[in-house]
Nucleic acid binder design. Structure first.
Lengths: 349, 349
DNA sequence: GCATGTTGAGAAAAGCTTTTCTCAGCATGC
DNA sequence: GCATGCTGAGAAAAGCTTTTCTCAACATGC
């Protein structure tokens, strides 16, 4: 990091400079050159600095392919996903990258859509490139990628997707997340808490609904209504029409299965002249910044900590690659409630 | 791809099987084995099939590192981005991947945030891994990544970011996109067309505004008002308050600088009881599915064809890697108007 | 019967780095 | 004066594949 006058030399146009070039320049053998640059072996301090100087001057950069071939370790991992929009996989990827970049490990990102052929293509490419490991992720916890990763000969970690329990996986704790939301409502004094969520075909829908019911039961509060529909704003609006349609006791809080639904709910409430959070509190799920922050009012929501999840997955893969034993199983990572303004302060506070 | 009874053999637990193993199994030299598997050299058909059979049975997979070392080509490229949310970079990435995967080329995705240290770290890692080329992309055309890629010794292509004009770059044709939007309005009979867009610090804001003005001038229609503010829904709502505040002649069409602004505009118009598209037409920019499709009504918007842009970038990089000459310069790729329901049918139709 | 050509296959080098041996030269200890 | 040990540095192998030579065996042509 010296800031001397000498400009760093750039890689020459043609053939990249090799260790052999450095050795010749310094008048030593390649073996000695290698040792000098890796701070190993024995030699005069003078020899060592002369070689290092030559390397610097020539712009030498060791050939990672050769190193990898020798070390049987490519410092490369593959990440497989089918989440085209990156809503879930990008934060995971960010976490993985964060965990790996300082160890010199790079990540192949491969989107396999839901196409088995594409999946196989990418997996084959990864294996030929001798990735040290593979991280599989997805847009939906209860769906698998269209390719079997179970007997590949390299370590595999699943992130935000649940394979058979003998694998190593990191997923969000959806029950815990739902608890956070409902308990938040209860703490604020809300008593009639409804749940509007996505399609019944999603496992997380049931997990979150179950936790919602459990928390209410524990608190001795009435359960329901629970409305399952779509993951969209329009479903949120439709649900509000249902909830506030005919007399009955309208809820004073709505826990939504994702932020889009929550946004639809908030919009519909506003259009009915129902104050949020004054009359009704709303909590979403996902903390999808673009939706949650632009709601009126900004949305309190459950964040699944996907960056952390990715970081854990990355670090675990690293352990695995280093040969350290890792207990198989599915780890559920805690969620976090991001409080904005859609729930208000305690009613009786 | 035979579907015989024999199950494909999986990679063994320990050392991966090498060409040497195959050769020994088939009772030939590695040279012969190599030629057999690459359909090269001369040998009896019997020998060839025997070797291929052995390879298949043993689950042989050539070591890409060794191949790359020899061919001086890693079949790997790096993609650098600072677009954390992937709104722009993910479609570009998808296009790149699409162009490359069938050539067996994999992509390192590296998010450098806006951190020069991180940028250098990733670039160093890429160069050590001997990527065949680098694609730099970003979330904003008029900003560069925090790292200099100009003298790396590997081909570099810029996508959705504008470097010095001697590089090779692909960007969207923002002027063209704006023209599409405004001409669409004119074709529909709209006459008082306003423009609500983002911050003046963005180059694209001025480019689109310029095209907007040009089209109106060509059509002999009044220009303006042009409101520059933020890239957010709330700014869209604020702008509507300005436009429809005091008497004057309110616009019958609003061309918005992105989809979020457009959504804010639409919401604010609805809340004022102004019919979209009946009284006012709205066009957005970006075709960000999640925003555009959930608007009420769904948003007609300009799509920058980022997947195509990525594909072009990928294919061009491939040419470059193959040593084919590529004219330097900045290529502007056409946009496309995605018509949904926020503009209506022709007024006089 | 001999020169020439073809065929099938192997030896060896190349691509680049790291690591383990080996070894000459010199100093030390007794 | 000789055995021992250390020091500095190089030779060579290993890691895996591809490609260019080389070569023996056999066939063909005259």
């Amino acid at each position: 990091m010296s800031d001397g006058m000498e400009r760093d030399v750039v890689a020459p146009r043609g053939r990249p400079v090799t260790l052999r070039d450095v050795a010749k320049d310094a008048g030593v053998s390649v073996a000695t050159a290698s040792k000098a640059l890796n701070d190993q072996g024995r030699m005069t301090a003078e020899t060592r600095t002369r070689i290092q100087e030559a390397a610097r001057r020539l712009g030498f950069r060791p050939n990672g392919l050769a190193q990898s071939l020798l070390r049987r370790r490519s410092f490369t991992v593959g990440m497989l996903t089918n989440d085209t929009y990156g809503r879930f996989s990008l934060p995971v990827m960010a976490g993985i990258s964060e965990a790996l970049v300082d160890n010199g490990v790079s990540v192949f990102l491969c989107n396999v859509e839901d196409d088995p052929r594409l999946g196989q293509l990418h997996v084959d490419a990864m294996l030929e490139k001798r990735v040290d490991g593979i991280i599989a992720t997805g847009k939906r916890i209860d769906r698998q990628l269209p390719v079997d990763l179970s007997r590949l000969g390299v370590p595999v970690i699943y992130a935000f997707t649940e394979p058979d329990p003998n694998s190593i996986a990191f997923v969000s704790d959806d029950e815990g997340g739902a608890r956070l939301a409902v308990e938040h409502f209860i703490r604020l004094g809300r008593r009639r808490i409804a749940h509007v969520t996505g399609p019944t075909t999603f496992t997380v829908v049931h997990r979150r609904a179950e936790a919602y019911r459990a928390v209410l039961a524990e608190a001795g509060l009435p359960v329901g209504p629970v409305l399952m529909g779509r993951w969209s704003e329009s479903w949120g609006r439709d649900a509000v029409a249902e909830l506030f349609g005919e007399g009955g006791s309208a809820p004073d809080a709505i826990f939504c299965g994702n932020d889009q639904i929550a946004r639809g709910v908030i919009d519909a409430l506003r259009e009915r002249g129902i104050d949020v959070p004054g009359s009704v509190g709303v909590v979403g799920f996902d903390n999808w910044e673009i939706v949650a922050a632009e709601s009126r009012p900004p949305l309190t929501t459950v964040d699944m900590n996907l960056v952390t999840l990715g970081r854990e997955a990355g670090m675990t893969l690293l352990s695995l690659v280093d040969g350290k034993p890792v207990e198989p199983g599915i780890r559920k990572l805690p969620c976090r409630l991001v409080v904005r303004q859609s729930c208000g302060r305690p009613l009786d506070g």
